[in-house]
Design a protein around this nucleic acid. Structure first.
Lengths: 248, 248
DNA sequence: GAGTGGTCTAGACCACTCC
DNA sequence: GAGTGGTCTAGACCACTCT
């Protein structure tokens, strides 16, 4: 046996079974008592082992229903390809570029909110000034994978389709372009962190240690280098592969 | 008190104490028995709570020595700024851009290795063909934060300073430029995942669930769109903030 | 109701550091 | 040697699903 802790050894063996295909994607895992018996440990140790795998994104658990091998196919999110004008200029939604037809946008909520500090600083308004907020959630194959909230200056978008739930073909960027504020430069800042409770619920992440999200804050600038939009996204860290292309 | 599990409530209170500054960065945490007594739980539950915070990167533990509030200052890693020719063209190392003078490069190991599949595919050689490998480790303030291994085609770099431990001013990219293969375009792919055992050791990450790394694979292309270098980096996920800038 | 995952107790032993 | 974090046992109860 490995010299490490028992729960690591158990996790190692299960992981190997998953990666070798012995346990296929979507398969139900043996129950905790079964694992305990098979590996000669207590159910607590078996639980620890499953926890490790859950943290790695290999296993998802549903209380009362069982543990399952995760259907594993990361979504590739490509930048700047997904934000290129050639893309949304053709009337397609940005997330189409990442996820094909499997993606759905849910729970779009549009409203006016006081600008958070980092938004106010970027948009050049006083902190707390009302800005347009567009919140939504992305699901792929019925699984929530991303939360996103965009903030735009009210004087730019008032009375336009950007204030509607459905912004029309090409999305908000196409509307900004029609207004003469087409975004041409982007800055994205990424941090990897633990989700808060609300994010755990909305992204259906398990509690306990291990679950991670990637927080992306994007700043969009128009041709005169004015920041016209700030978007904060929270991604299920195990659901994505991010790609960036740039010139030296 | 909160309706959730006890270990979450304990973690919540400690987290609040850290974020409010009541527990300062670098402070020693109360011991597990102390926490257990204070919150009326067992040491096991106190341990679970500390585990949660460890996973969030707020606390670091040293077996036998205690648990400490992490000194927390994420390293900002900016692209393409850090890879711009204007930077390494002046003879500065790339990591200077991210971390200032606090960074150190350790354990540089140069050698010839069979190309991993993803490297061979990018460099346009057969899988297993010998390529130059440059492995190294980055430390900031004495703490290991990143592992990196670069792969370059042997026929490009044989007999050049790139095969030395010290590649000279401006690093490998400056040498590639002198050879007429200056990298001008980059693609970086990022995934969040759990570290393997070797990575846990080299990055001084705790075992158990919770620790995460960001794996970045970078492909560097020269002016004729030939891939001249592949670099795989493994970052302590809680140590970095990544920034990307690009045009639509 | 039976089975499942999630949490918890009240101990125990080990490896490690040196407060 | 005392104190610490890390692991583990052998139970228990709860919330949940329905395999």
């Amino acid at each position: 046996m490995g010299s490490g802790p028992a729960y690591q050894r158990v996790a190692d063996e299960i992981r190997a079974a998953i990666l070798s295909g012995e346990l296929a994607q979507g398969d139900r895992m043996p129950s905790l008592p079964e694992l305990a018996t098979r590996f000669g440990v207590t159910t607590t140790v078996a639980h620890n082992a499953v926890n490790v795998l859950r943290g790695e994104g290999l296993v998802v658990t549903r209380q009362g229903a069982g543990a399952y091998v995760r259907r594993f196919e990361r979504i590739r999110r490509s930048s700047p390809g997904r934000l290129a004008r050639s893309h949304w200029g053709q009337g397609r939604a940005i997330q189409d570029h990442d996820t094909g037809v499997r993606a759905r946008v849910l729970g779009v909520v549009v409203g006016e909110v006081p600008a958070p500090e980092y938004v106010a600083a970027a948009l050049g308004v006083d902190s707390g000034t009302a800005v347009l907020s567009r919140a939504r959630r992305f699901e792929v194959d019925g699984r929530p994978v991303q939360l996103a909230t965009s903030y735009l200056p009210l004087e730019l978008v008032r009375g336009t389709a950007i204030t509607y739930t459905d912004t029309g073909p090409g999305g908000a960027y196409a509307r900004l372009a029609e207004l003469g504020f087409a975004p041409v430069r982007f800055v994205e800042r990424l941090t990897d962190r633990a989700p808060n409770q609300q994010e755990r619920e909305q992204l259906a992440l398990s509690s306990g240690a291990g679950a991670r999200v990637i927080e992306i804050t994007r700043f969009a600038y128009d041709g005169s280098d004015r920041c016209v939009e700030v978007t904060r996204m929270v991604l299920d860290a195990t659901a994505y592969e991010l790609e960036y292309e740039f010139l030296a």
